[in-house]
Simulated assay, not measured.
Amino acid sequence: MQAYNKLNIENYFLAEEAKKLYRKRFLNKEQLIAICSQLVQLKSNSNIFFRIGFFLLGSFLFSSIISAFAVVLLQIISHDYQIIFFLYAIVAYIGLEVLVKMKFFRHGLDDAFILSSQVSFLIGIGILSESVISVLITMVVLGIFFTIRFINTISALIAYIGLVGIFFNSIVEHDFMPKFYLSFVGLALAVFIYFFVGYLIKNQNLYPYFKTFDTIRIVSLLLGYLSMNYLVVRELSESLMELTITNASDVPFAIVFYILTFFIPLLYIFWGIKWKDKLVLYSGLLTLVFGFFSIRYYYNILPIEFVMVFSGIFLFGLAYLIIQKLKNKTEGVTFKPDRDLDNSLLFNAQAVLSFVNVATPTEDQTNSMEFGGGGFSGGGAGEKF
Rank of each mutant, 00 (worst) to 15 (best):
C36Y: 10
F355Q: 13
L122R: 01
G332Y: 14
P178E: 04
S120I: 02
L346G: 14
L21K: 04
L321E: 11
S183N: 09
L226V: 07
S44Y: 03
S134D: 02
Y230T: 02
F210A: 06
V309A: 15
N152E: 04
E383A: 14
Y160G: 04
F13L: 04
Y93L: 10
A349T: 15
I154C: 07
S116Q: 10
F50R: 09
T287C: 11
I144Q: 05
M177E: 01
F270H: 10
L288E: 07
L318S: 15
T147Q: 00
L345F: 14
N5R: 04
T153S: 01
G382Y: 06
K29F: 13
L109G: 06
T153P: 03
D277W: 06
V135Q: 08
F257L: 01
I313D: 08
L243M: 13
M177L: 02
L187T: 00
D338R: 14
F262Q: 05
L14C: 07
F292M: 09
G108Q: 06
F195I: 00
I52L: 03
T362E: 12
P252H: 09
N229K: 07
L42F: 06
F85H: 05
F253P: 12
S129Q: 02
F145K: 05
G143F: 00
F167P: 02
L39P: 02
V91P: 08
C36K: 04
Q41H: 03
I166V: 05
A92I: 01
G378C: 04
I137C: 01
Y181V: 00
N169M: 00
F26Y: 12
R234A: 08
F195T: 07
A254C: 15
P178H: 09
P208K: 07
G108L: 05
I295N: 09
T153Q: 06
L326A: 10
R25T: 15
N203R: 10
V280C: 02
A349C: 14
L286M: 09
V172E: 00
N28E: 08
N28G: 07
F262C: 04
F314E: 13
S120H: 00
L61P: 11
M369C: 12
G124K: 03
F376T: 13
K101S: 02
R339F: 15
E17T: 05
S283G: 00
V197E: 04
E17G: 10
F263T: 12
F176W: 10
I83M: 08
D111S: 01
A188T: 06
T147P: 05
S59E: 10
V185D: 09
G272Q: 02
M228H: 05
V98S: 04
I52W: 00
